[in-house]
């Protein structure tokens, strides 16, 4: 059985997968693109050639591209390139952190539920139903109210401890409730998908074989079932990232998430969509960054899926 054989060559599986990934030109291109994007968002703004993202210039509103402003200016005359790059920091962070929270919760929860079966499964899945039907905004508002104070204390503590400037620390810890809230509610669909897959897998021969060999539940779950879930999970995850990044913008409009005048890709796209008739470029630029990043992410996801597919190893 594929999974059993792969277990004995644990290391070579990873190496094989990497080799397969590197052979996939689209996937490699995506990795390079994502790395460049991250670099641009996190490092480029440190150079003086990028204007401050919050510097308004009311005499040059919604200007088109020029030498001074490569991507033009927004509705308050702020440099668009700089806003898109700074916005990328927030959005990439939200995308990575919230998704990480969601995927970890969803996969483990779904696997355990599907593998355990019976009453445990029923109880766990009905809990998911309840959480799924809870009104998102209400939950987020109540949640952020209760977590706001601890986050503020945390910020104070970090500022005291490290001596960093408050301005640098505050945005990150101010966003913590958002990462947690989005992540904490984003895992539900994934949990359902994983649970169904696990249900199907646990009756398959290789799992039965593993069980008859006397392997522990833990190792069956994580060594035999998990690798077979990889494909679906990676595809669903890459699918969920845009939704997660955009949820942040919805939240920032009710005062959670990134605080104005700071931007994120989601808020930039929303602001652009409102000015569609007047200045379409305000929508187009952030949307291009956003879409390209997510396309790259999805192609990388496909590449990973193919590379790690235990079945394709035999091909």
């Amino acid at each position: 059985m594929s999974s059993v054989t792969s277990r004995s060559h644990g290391h070579s599986l990873l190496r094989d997968a990497l080799q397969r990934l590197l052979r996939n030109r689209v996937a490699t291109g995506s990795v390079v693109f994502l790395a460049l994007m991250a670099l641009a968002c996190f490092v480029l703004p440190l150079f003086p050639c990028i204007a401050s993202p919050n510097l308004t210039d009311l005499d040059h509103i919604a200007a088109t591209s020029s030498l001074q402003h490569w991507l033009g200016t927004d509705h308050l005359g702020r440099d668009m390139l700089s806003r898109v790059l700074y916005g990328g920091r927030i959005s990439l962070l939200v995308g990575v952190l919230s998704t990480a929270v969601a995927v970890m919760l969803g996969v483990v929860y779904g696997m355990v539920s599907g593998y355990a079966g019976g009453r445990t499964d029923a109880a766990m899945m009905r809990t998911v139903d309840v959480l799924f039907a809870l009104p998102f905004i209400v939950v987020v508002v109540v949640f952020s109210l209760s977590i706001e104070e601890p986050c503020r204390q945390m910020t104070d503590y970090v500022v005291q401890l490290t001596g960093w400037s408050r301005d640098a620390v505050a945005p990150l810890f101010g966003l913590a409730p958002v990462f947690l809230a989005i992540g904490a509610l984003g895992w539900l669909t994934l949990a359902r998908i994983v649970r169904t897959q696990t249900l199907a897998l646990r009756e398959q021969e290789f799992v039965l074989a593993a069980r008859s060999l006397g392997l522990s539940h833990f190792s069956i779950l994580f060594r035999h079932i998990a690798p077979n879930l990889f494909g679906t999970v990676i595809v669903y995850t890459t699918l969920a990232v845009p939704g997660i990044i955009l949820t942040e913008s919805t939240l920032s409009f009710i005062g959670l998430g990134v605080k104005a005048p700071n931007s994120s890709w989601g808020t930039l796209i929303k602001e652009g969509a409102d000015r569609l008739e007047v200045a379409p470029q305000l929508l187009v630029y952030p949307a291009i960054f956003f879409c390209l990043t997510l396309l790259a992410l999805n192609f990388l996801g496909d590449g990973l899926r193919d590379a790690f597919d235990p079945k394709s190893a035999k091909d």
């Binding site: 919050n54 510097l55 308004t56 509705h75 308050l76 409009f253 005062g255 605080k259 104005a260 005048p261």
Partner: peptide, 24 residues
């Protein structure tokens, strides 16, 4: 948007730190 522009004016003219808190 108005708050963002006024915040920028206060920062530019007076140098006072101002944040924006959007509420539902």
């Amino acid at each position: 948007v108005m708050a963002e522009s006024i915040q920028a004016m206060w920062v530019r003219v007076l140098g006072v730190p101002v944040e924006i808190r959007a509420c539902e």
